[in-house]
Amino acid sequence: MTKTIIEVKNLRKDFFMGEVTVHALRGVSLEIKAGEFVAIMGTSGSGKSTMLNILGCLDKPTSGEYYLDEVAVSGLTKNELAMLRNRKLGFVFQSYNLLARTSALENVELPLLYNSKIKAKERKEIAIHALEAVGLADRMHHMPNQLSGGQQQRVAIARSLVNDPVVILADEATGNLDTRTSYEIMALFQELNSKGKTIVFVTHEPDIAKFTSKNVIFKDGHIIKQLDVVDRNDARQMIAELPAVNEYD
């Protein structure tokens, strides 16, 4: 039996804005097993971002239970949450969030700086491995502004990998990229997934969701549908099918 990485039971999240209470999540239950590649979909305001924040231990639910890798998250303090993020989670953001004027390698090393168990030398080795895994070994000393959007996102993915997280949380990770680059990033995610990484991917683009193994659809704070993707797209293949960019040749 595969291990359950994320287990959420009857999760509620209310925001109090003055006199108005916004119910962002109205009782959500979800289970994600190891090795799954889940797309969380929904329109703006459907609660998917709130869900991701809670899954990412950045926010606390108003009520409900959340187990991350069998750890009960609800009762943890701020510092314990930070520790959990450091050891068990990897984040990939829409806008990459790389540190400017800091080399790719140093950006990737960043999460390890907050892990006192890892020594400086190890840190560098792990970071180089992660960059190799995303195919950027030759760019490790480049600054973010010397990298393309796709490459920057690869650095961000490498950064999310260095601490060997139980789950990678990606928030619209392809939102700033063109189609081809998006597919390349999805190909990378698929590759990581095939090696056993659990990935939770928030997106509102159905064609991107097609690359994942399971789609969870949010609406008005509820999960309205959970479906396994039957005709899953292979990103490598899709790239090959794209028209070649040689119009100006």
Partner: peptide, 16 residues
Amino acid sequence: TREIGLRMSIGGRGKD
């Protein structure tokens, strides 16, 4: 601010 947010999301505590 964004750098701070990032550092926190990858495990930086308030103290750090």
